[in-house]
Each structure stands twice: as C-alpha cells, then as structure tokens.
Design a protein around this nucleic acid. Sequence first.
DNA 1: CGTCCGTTTGAACTATGTCAACGTTGGTGG
DNA 2: CCACCAACGTTGACATAGTTCAAACGGACG
Lengths: 231, 231
Amino acid sequence: MNNPSSIQCFAAGDLIFEVGSTAALYEIQSGVVLLRHREADGGHHVLEVFGPGALVGVPPGQRQSVAAECLTPAVVRTLAPDQDDAVPFWRGVAERLSAQMSQLQRKMLMVGRAGAPQRLAFLLARLMDIQILGTPAASGMDVPLPLSRVNIANYLLLSPETVSRLFSDLRRRGLIDYQAVDSVAVRDVRALRHLAEFGTLQSRPPAPSDDARPRQRPRGRFGNRRQSLVA
Amino acid sequence: MNNPSSIQCFAAGDLIFEVGSTAALYEIQSGVVLLRHREADGGHHVLEVFGPGALVGVPPGQRQSVAAECLTPAVVRTLAPDQDDAVPFWRGVAERLSAQMSQLQRKMLMVGRAGAPQRLAFLLARLMDIQILGTPAASGMDVPLPLSRVNIANYLLLSPETVSRLFSDLRRRGLIDYQAVDSVAVRDVRALRHLAEFGTLQSRPPAPSDDARPRQRPRGRFGNRRQSLVA
DNA sequence: CGTCCGTTTGAACTATGTCAACGTTGGTGG
DNA sequence: CCACCAACGTTGACATAGTTCAAACGGACG
C-alpha cells in the first residue's frame, strides 16, 4: 500500500499478466507489449499493440479479461494510488482509458471497413510511431517488426497468407523493402501513411499539381459506392 | 460545481452531445442511445448502441470524439464528482470505462471475424438485452428496432442490402418474424443466441442427443481452417 | 395523387479466405 | 558436423461471402 509504484522488467515472450489475474494497472516504460484474447477453440486474437507510455490492465475490483505479453524486453511500472493524490490518480486513469477507447474505435473501423492493404499500412504506421516516439518519420527508416506474420494476421483479422501477399505487394510497389521478416525499411513514408489513412496509393509525387483529376475519395472494401450524402 | 448530478430529457433524434463538445460524462437512465463517428466524406459510423445504465461521454479535460444521439426518448443524468466522494467517483468511472473496453473488444472481434448472419444475431441479442434488462428472454417477445436498416448496417459494418437480405433469411428460417421494419418478434431465442455466439444454426432440438455427429465448431468468415493448435 | 426515401430482391464482380505445395530457417539428435 | 524435422513464410489456384449496381416496391408526406 505504501508502495505506490514499482518497476518490473520482462524478457521478450514474458507475460505481464494472464487472463483472470487479479486486477492491476501497468504503465509501459519501454518495450512493445501485445494484448491477447484467448478463444474457446484454443486460438487467440491480438487485440492491441502498445508502446511506451501506454496503460494496460484493469483497475482493481475486476479480473484481467485479456493477457499482456512482451514482444521485446520491456520495463513496466505498476500503478497504484497514493493516499494524497488518489483523486488525480483515478482521474488520470479515467482519462487515459477514455483515450484508449478512441484508439480502439479507430482500429475497429479499420478492421471492419478498410481493405487488407490499408489495414497493414495502418499497423506499420503504428509501429513506426511506437518506434520513433515524437521524432518525425523519415523515409528510409528501419522499423523492427516484433510480431510474427501470424500475429500480424491476428491483429489485423486477416489470414497469414494474405498478410504475406501484402508484404510482397508493398515491396513490389516500392513502399517498403526488407531482407529478413522481422524488420522493414520504409522507402516511402508519405505513400504508406496515405495508404493507411485513405486506402489508396497516391499517384507518385511527379504529378505536377494536376488539379483537374478525379478527386481521390477514401476507398476500402466499401467506399466505391455513390455516397447518399444525406443520411 | 455544487450540482453534482442533474437530469436531462431528450426526444428521439436529439443529440446528447456532438463531436468537439466540451467533455462531460452522462449516465443513461432510460432510452436507447447511439454513438456516432463522423467521417471526412460526410458519412458516419455507428460505433455503439447503449441502453439504461451505460456511461457515455469522456471525462473533463478532453473533447468529445464522437456524437451521442437518442434513438428513443431518453433520460440521462450528468455525472460530476462531489467534493467528498471524488475518489470513489473517479474510481467508478475508471472501472466502468474499463468494462466498456471489454465490450468494445468483443464487438471488434464480431465485426472483424464473424460472418454477417452472426453479426446481425449479435445486434439483435444486444437489443433484446437492452429491452428486458434482467428478465430472462422469452421466445415470442417483441423487440423494438430503434435503428433503421442503414444504421444497423453501419453498426455492423455491412452494406444495407446485406442487412436486408439477412432479415429476410432469418424470417424464412423462422428465427424471427415481423410486419413492420421497426420491430421484430423473436420466434426462437435459443437459436438466435446460438447464432450470435457460435455463428451456426443449431440443428433443431429434435436431434435425439446424437453424440456421434461431427462436433459443431464456431464458424465465421474464418474458422473453417484446421487449427494449428500450437501457436 | 405523385414524389421521394427506405427497403427489398436480383445478378454480377471482387476481395479475401481456404487448400495445397514448396522453400527457408533453426533446432535436435545421430 | 551433418541429416532430419518442425515451424514459419511464400506463392499459386480455387471457392465464396459480401459488396456493388440496378430495378421494383412500399409507405409517408406534401
């Protein structure tokens, strides 16, 4: 109780907590952490991937509904309220949970509405952000992929085969490059971010500000339909 | 400040708050409320549907990232901390937000992995739960549908045409029945819940406990693949 | 009574899952 | 040290659920 915040270190592959563990809140100090959800049939889904600064776990009084696994060596801080700052503490937790809700909502739209290429670009963009933490992304930067293809597929709710094909496509198109499977060199950050956001490949920059071309509208699995514009 | 909780009433179609409104937390007392997310192209997505007891909005210090619209006449209570009970208040908010995260995660898996029929059954089950609130569901009960087909499609991330077809199918198969589009009579609660959970139609009960039939495993858009069982 | 929007139904298309075969890597045991 | 094996990743061929386009129907509202 008089130990308001303690530090813990984990190796890659370690579990920070398991489903059903007694509740606790953790703040990631360094490393990349994955939230998994076990299925009845023995499979599992990757719900979220978090980097430094994120809050994982549930507040006391409940049980953990998911498992948290370290993808890289990681340092986490256990969060607990002090006697004095209990109000700002819980307020802060509420705010951060609320922010994570928004993040999860974005992912849901991604996974439910966007096409497969956009989804992968989305994940790559997120991994870039986790890597650089503030620094502006530069083309040519190397992004580690702490997840296997299978985990990526689970995260994006795609089949591993599709993920594999997508990587090949992105490389063919020159957006990324890689030798090993556990990291990619981002050749064209701009195109990648554009793909993540709009689901389309922007016609290469050379286009000399041609204003008259048919406006590019967001495209996913949906989005090719005339919008009713009224609803 | 000395007004810790105030009651507000809304008519169907009213907005409780809009995107960008100053933050506030509301507890739904009665009625059905929908969370919408506006898109760049003028369309919108239905993120969640809530009934009495749910918490909507964000804690002070942020801006609303979504809009909340009443589908039926509704009564909501504005939540604000008292001087005395600030700690339990924020603690409670954190816990309820955390619980909603789990709920949203379930929906994400639904929308990303389950097939269209399962998704609709999922929504119908949720609407049943919102209606009855505790009372055990009975076959033959009448469930109001406060959402249009288009909104249902948006919620489930399907096209309206698909939703329409699904309703027709469910009626053909005798799980539900309806004359108007704004309510359904649930003919077979059991089958509907089974569909929502497993994605399959249970062979009608008559099956005389035939143990030797190929075990029904969960089926969605995925799930027909041999599980690696190892990962 | 006519128009309009939401719903329904039909037909065709496409993205993505499934199945299957092959290559590569890393670990294990002879 | 090398042979073998098991995962994982890649690629191809095929199947299909769900979107898209199109047209017809119905109720609501002027």
